[in-house]
Amino acid sequence: MTTVMVVDDHPMWRDGVSRDLTGAGFEVVATAGTVAEAAARAAATQPQVVLMDMHLPDGNGAAATAAVLEVSGEAKILVLSASSEREDVLEAVKAGASGYLVKSASAAELLDAVRATADGQAVFTPGLAGLVLGEYRRMSTVPDAKGGADLPSLTERETEVLRFVAKGLSAKQIGTRLGVSHRTVENHVQSSLRKLHLSNRVELARYAMEHGLD
């Protein structure tokens, strides 16, 4: 059972999301309404996934993300916010968030996003993944990163899969795009992780973003 902490300063919203998660088979181990509460309760419960609001009374979601990861390094942070502002999205990702979902998402989309985040996928509301990719490309200082020239150890198919991983697609979605099974996609992902000395899909997605793959 995946353990989840819900961080939001609105009690009714927090309780409603917690009920949806519990009903779907997740274990909500903690809730919090401030940055300070989020850090303290993450340290105590070590949740696998943290649903994080971007606007809290004593700071923002980026500060809370950094605080939670400092005390619970294995947690995966999925921002769930009413804001889709560029600055909020980029600040959250730079602080260590694995994904970003706007609150207009349906309950089913939220539950799917939590499952995907727990599995190590980078999940973004459509349109936001492109924003993050563009920013990482702009910030990239790797001199030979253009066009993936610094990835000689990856096969053409592995690089192709990597581009889809960076966009937040699941193995099943990538398989559909490429006409292969999701197991074949996962084999390519695992091979890429080994070659690049990375540990999970989130790190792989960030690697792709930092190296200008789209």
Results as ranks from 00 to 15, higher is better:
184 T>C: 05
1 M>K: 12
99 G>T: 05
85 E>F: 13
91 E>R: 10
73 G>M: 08
51 L>N: 04
173 Q>T: 10
162 L>A: 00
136 Y>E: 09
118 A>S: 15
4 V>N: 02
207 Y>D: 08
118 A>E: 13
22 T>V: 14
75 A>R: 01
42 A>T: 01
53 D>I: 01
197 H>K: 15
94 K>D: 14
10 H>K: 12
64 A>C: 04
6 V>H: 03
73 G>C: 09
22 T>W: 06
45 T>S: 12
58 D>Q: 02
210 E>D: 13
91 E>A: 13
135 E>W: 15
110 L>I: 08
92 A>K: 06
16 G>F: 01
122 A>C: 12
21 L>A: 05
128 L>C: 10
46 Q>H: 12
114 V>N: 07
118 A>F: 07
27 E>P: 00
166 A>C: 10
116 A>I: 03
59 G>I: 03
21 L>H: 05
153 S>P: 05
81 S>N: 02
8 D>S: 07
55 H>W: 10
68 V>M: 02
22 T>S: 15
196 L>Y: 07
157 R>N: 14
135 E>I: 04
61 G>N: 02
125 T>K: 11
63 A>N: 03
69 L>D: 01
92 A>H: 01
58 D>K: 05
72 S>R: 01
153 S>L: 08
109 E>D: 14
88 D>A: 14
167 K>I: 03
213 L>T: 05
131 L>W: 02
207 Y>S: 08
89 V>N: 00
73 G>P: 11
85 E>Y: 13
112 D>G: 12
207 Y>Q: 09
141 T>M: 15
185 V>N: 05
66 A>M: 02
61 G>F: 02
20 D>F: 12
115 R>W: 07
204 L>M: 07
174 I>D: 05
72 S>G: 04
65 T>L: 04
177 R>N: 13
209 M>A: 13
193 L>I: 09
185 V>C: 08
39 A>F: 03
17 V>W: 00
12 M>E: 15
76 K>A: 06
37 E>F: 01
65 T>N: 06
66 A>H: 00
115 R>F: 05
93 V>D: 01
71 V>Q: 03
88 D>F: 11
146 K>D: 12
132 V>H: 09
81 S>A: 07
181 S>K: 10
143 P>A: 11
193 L>A: 07
149 A>W: 06
165 V>Q: 04
114 V>A: 10
122 A>W: 00
107 A>L: 14
157 R>S: 14
63 A>K: 08
148 G>A: 07
42 A>S: 15
72 S>H: 03
112 D>M: 14
72 S>F: 03
173 Q>M: 11
36 A>Q: 14
196 L>T: 08
174 I>W: 02
172 K>F: 10
208 A>S: 13
14 R>Q: 14
89 V>L: 00
99 G>D: 01
190 Q>R: 15
177 R>M: 11
176 T>G: 12
144 D>K: 09
